Amino acid sequence: MLAKVGAAVVAGVLVLTGALAGLAGSLQSESGCAVAAGPVVDLDDEQAASARVIVAVGQQRDVPARGLLIALMTAMQESGLRNLDYGDRDSLGLFQQRPSMGWGTPEQVREPAYAAAAFFGGPSSPTGNRGLLDVDGWEAMALTEAAQAVQRSAFPDAYAKWEAGARAWLADILDDPAAAASAGCAPASESARVAIAAAEQWLGTPYAWGGGDLNGPTLGFGSGAGTVGFDCSGLTRYAWAQAGVLLPRTSRDQWNAPGVRVTTMAQLQPGDLVFFAHDLGDPSTIFHVAMSLGGDAMIEAPQTGDVVKIEQRVSQSSYWAPKFIGGLRLSGSS
């Protein structure tokens, strides 16, 4: 049985690598981004080949980097970036597309380049179904909302947890640093990836004022009495402790931790601490800290009654943007 499974995996990698080779030969030289076979950070060979096919297909169709990011997040949630021959009901392939719903024949949706082209849609779509480029205003949507507009999943928020990883994969795939930067894809450092992963494993955990220590969520006190969870600085302190960086307990003390000050949201990189204050000229009025995921997103424990979550489009938020006092790239985070 193990030999049969191993052979299936190898066959899947060969199919994906062949698809990638064909696509690489047809990519327009003016695209500015050469996509070649090879490893991708944090992905195995099969996943890396899948990711490179998706990016190559998107580049053929002049899909902007934000669209490539959405496609990678979607495929990771739907199939683990694997060309599956099974799924819910008749769902198949990288994007778990259903032949019975008009996405193509079973053979077509299991052809990686076809599946990616169908997901992107647009004028050159191989199917009549609505793809990403056919969704009005997709460029301004939160990434997970844009994915859901195509997939119509029973779990519409599930795509968000792959955002940080997808940014790292895209940055690794794109040879053009400017293209990677346009999607907020500055690659995370190894320690930042550890800290982000540590925080993300607690998505959905209740906010508890005073909650959280170096080992995880704890019983809060004051307004958090009776609730096991994290407050904002408890979450960031826990996450960075897993990467070997010890922070003070409160958001105001974390502002003064050793590191490099980041003055604009556009400069934030994955893992940077993000601070908010009532008076932008007075750090003693800081009331909240979160951790940047890059690309205008952050993970946070927001307030009583809420849960640990990912906040999208922070720079466009009428609440958060006016209160941004600065960020901090921690010493020891590179």
Rank of each mutant, 00 (worst) to 15 (best):
169 W>H: 14
141 M>S: 02
182 S>E: 14
198 A>D: 06
178 A>K: 05
143 L>Q: 04
146 A>V: 10
175 D>M: 01
184 G>T: 07
213 D>C: 00
131 G>M: 07
180 A>S: 09
177 P>R: 13
206 P>H: 11
172 D>A: 12
140 A>E: 14
147 A>C: 12
196 I>M: 07
185 C>V: 03
196 I>H: 01
162 W>Q: 10
148 Q>N: 15
130 R>P: 00
177 P>W: 04
177 P>F: 10
155 F>E: 15
158 A>G: 11
162 W>D: 07
132 L>R: 07
186 A>P: 00
184 G>V: 03
151 Q>H: 05
191 S>H: 10
153 S>I: 13
217 P>A: 13
193 R>C: 09
174 L>C: 12
179 A>F: 02
168 A>P: 00
168 A>R: 03
120 F>R: 00
203 L>M: 09
204 G>C: 10
198 A>V: 10
184 G>D: 11
136 D>E: 15
187 P>K: 09
127 T>G: 08
162 W>C: 00
161 K>D: 01
143 L>F: 08
124 S>V: 08
191 S>P: 09
153 S>F: 01
176 D>R: 04
153 S>E: 05
198 A>S: 15
192 A>D: 11
213 D>N: 13
156 P>M: 11
122 G>D: 05
207 Y>E: 13
200 E>V: 13
159 Y>C: 09
128 G>Q: 15
167 R>L: 08
154 A>Q: 10
168 A>G: 04
150 V>W: 08
135 V>H: 02
177 P>A: 14
195 A>D: 03
171 A>N: 06
167 R>S: 03
178 A>W: 02
144 T>V: 13
189 S>V: 12
141 M>L: 15
184 G>P: 01
136 D>K: 10
169 W>R: 04
162 W>N: 09
130 R>Y: 02
134 D>W: 01
137 G>W: 05
185 C>T: 00
176 D>H: 07
129 N>M: 14
169 W>L: 07
143 L>N: 07
184 G>S: 09
122 G>I: 14
122 G>L: 12
121 G>T: 12
200 E>G: 01
117 A>I: 02
194 V>E: 14
131 G>N: 05
135 V>T: 12
206 P>N: 13
163 E>C: 02
